[in-house]
């Protein structure tokens, strides 16, 4: 049900954009909505991060995934159980860039009355392919918002087209992004455990991204749009001298609208893991809590059972057992 709902929602979004463009509401779909979406994205993102930031980290709770630093002759695992800030930076880099934890993934099965744990790197592969291509595609698109296009963006673009097939050159990242998003979607549908835990909020972003990728690919290779005019429009957005040239092609507005929805939706969704991963106290703290005191800003005052109260209750038995006491009676 969650899946159908999300699919329908994305189809409706496509239809809205389609009709909007047909109705020539180009100012709305080409300028107003994109601006609004970016605004919502920025404000929402900041609001969420502030919200997280307002809650302190009362305790020092890294999840340690390797040998601690203790005695000098014991080899310590400086990345999976860092004891210094530098180590934490390393751990976070591994986590954010290489998905270290997902790389550990296993699959548990029962076979012959025994639990067995098989290596299972598909989720890691799918995720990393998805995220890396997403970032590259994002960077590639900077060419639409910069004039002249910086050489590094061109370089990425060129590298992306290394296959040198088709006109225009096939950009491999777009295809991989679509494939990876499709894998993640199929996994959600066919892996019974993942299906069971999935919410509409899990399908929706996938359909949205698939919609963005498909419309982008269609636009580049099949239903060509006037790329010069597109750039006029996007440069107008980037420089705040907005203009909506005629005759760009409807598919462009569908693409742009889905992206706008993506941005506006982002801060209110699980997509915020982009920001959250950096704040996770089980990953971003050094395991040095016995060497450096961690301070809890709200350390509560609590009622204690003092030694005096204890001795008052047990003084006689303590004395008869020869256990030293503070007061004789």
């Amino acid at each position: 049900m969650g899946m159908i709902f999300s699919l329908v929602a994305v189809i409706v979004l496509v239809a809205i954009a389609f009709m909007g463009a047909k109705q020539n509401l180009l100012g709305l779909f080409g300028v107003a909505i994109p601006y609004l979406a970016v605004l919502v994205f920025i404000a929402g993102f900041i609001r969420k991060v502030i919200k997280w930031g307002q809650s302190p980290v009362p305790f020092h709770i890294p999840t340690t995934c390797g040998q601690q630093k203790s005695l000098p002759w014991i080899k310590h695992s400086s990345l999976d159980n860092p004891s210094t800030t530098l180590g934490v930076v390393g751990r976070m880099a591994l986590e954010v860039l290489l998905f270290r934890s997902l790389f550990r993934n296993l699959k548990t099965d029962m076979s012959d009355g025994r639990a067995v744990y098989g290596s299972n790197k598909w989720l890691w592969l799918g995720s990393i392919a998805f995220h890396v291509t997403f970032v590259v595609v994002f960077i590639r698109h900077l060419r639409f918002f910069m004039e002249p296009v910086p050489t590094w963006v061109n370089a990425i673009d060129a590298a992306d087209g290394f296959l040198q097939v088709g006109v225009p050159h096939l950009l491999i990242t777009g295809v991989v992004l679509l494939a990876a998003a499709t894998y993640l979607l199929l996994r959600r549908i066919f892996n019974a455990q993942v299906k069971y835990i999935s919410l509409p909020a899990d399908y929706f972003p996938l359909f949205l991204i698939i919609g963005i990728a498909v419309s982008g690919i269609l636009m580049r290779y099949f239903i060509k749009v006037d790329i010069i005019k597109v750039k006029e429009l996007t440069m107008g957005l980037a420089t705040f001298h907005t203009t909506v040239p005629d005759g760009i092609g409807v598919i462009f507005f569908v693409h742009l609208f889905l992206i706008s929805v993506f941005f506006a939706y982002f801060p209110f969704s699980k997509l915020m893991h982009l920001g959250g991963v950096f704040l996770s106290p089980t990953r971003n703290l050094a395991n040095n809590s016995r060497a450096v005191r961690h301070v809890n800003p709200w350390n509560p005052k609590v009622k204690l059972h003092t030694y005096e109260e204890y001795e008052d209750e047990f003084r006689e038995v303590m004395k008869s057992e020869g256990i030293p006491v503070e007061k004789e009676s």
């Binding site: 969420k48 919200k51 997280w52 930031g53 307002q54 809650s55 302190p56 980290v57 009362p58 709770i61 934890s101 997902l102 993934n105 296993l106 699959k107 548990t108 989720l123 995720s127 892996n191 455990q193 993942v194 835990i197 999935s198 919410l199 899990d202 699980k270 915020m272 893991h273 959250g276 991963v277 704040l279 996770s280 106290p281 089980t282 709200w298």
Partner: peptide, 24 residues
């Protein structure tokens, strides 16, 4: 608790239900 523990608020917000933890 949400105000006192960043872990709590964050963990409430960012799970993507990837299922990596499911059979662990």
């Amino acid at each position: 608790l949400l105000k006192k523990f960043r872990s709590f608020r964050l963990f409430m917000d960012i799970c993507v239900r990837c299922g990596a933890c499911a059979d662990k």
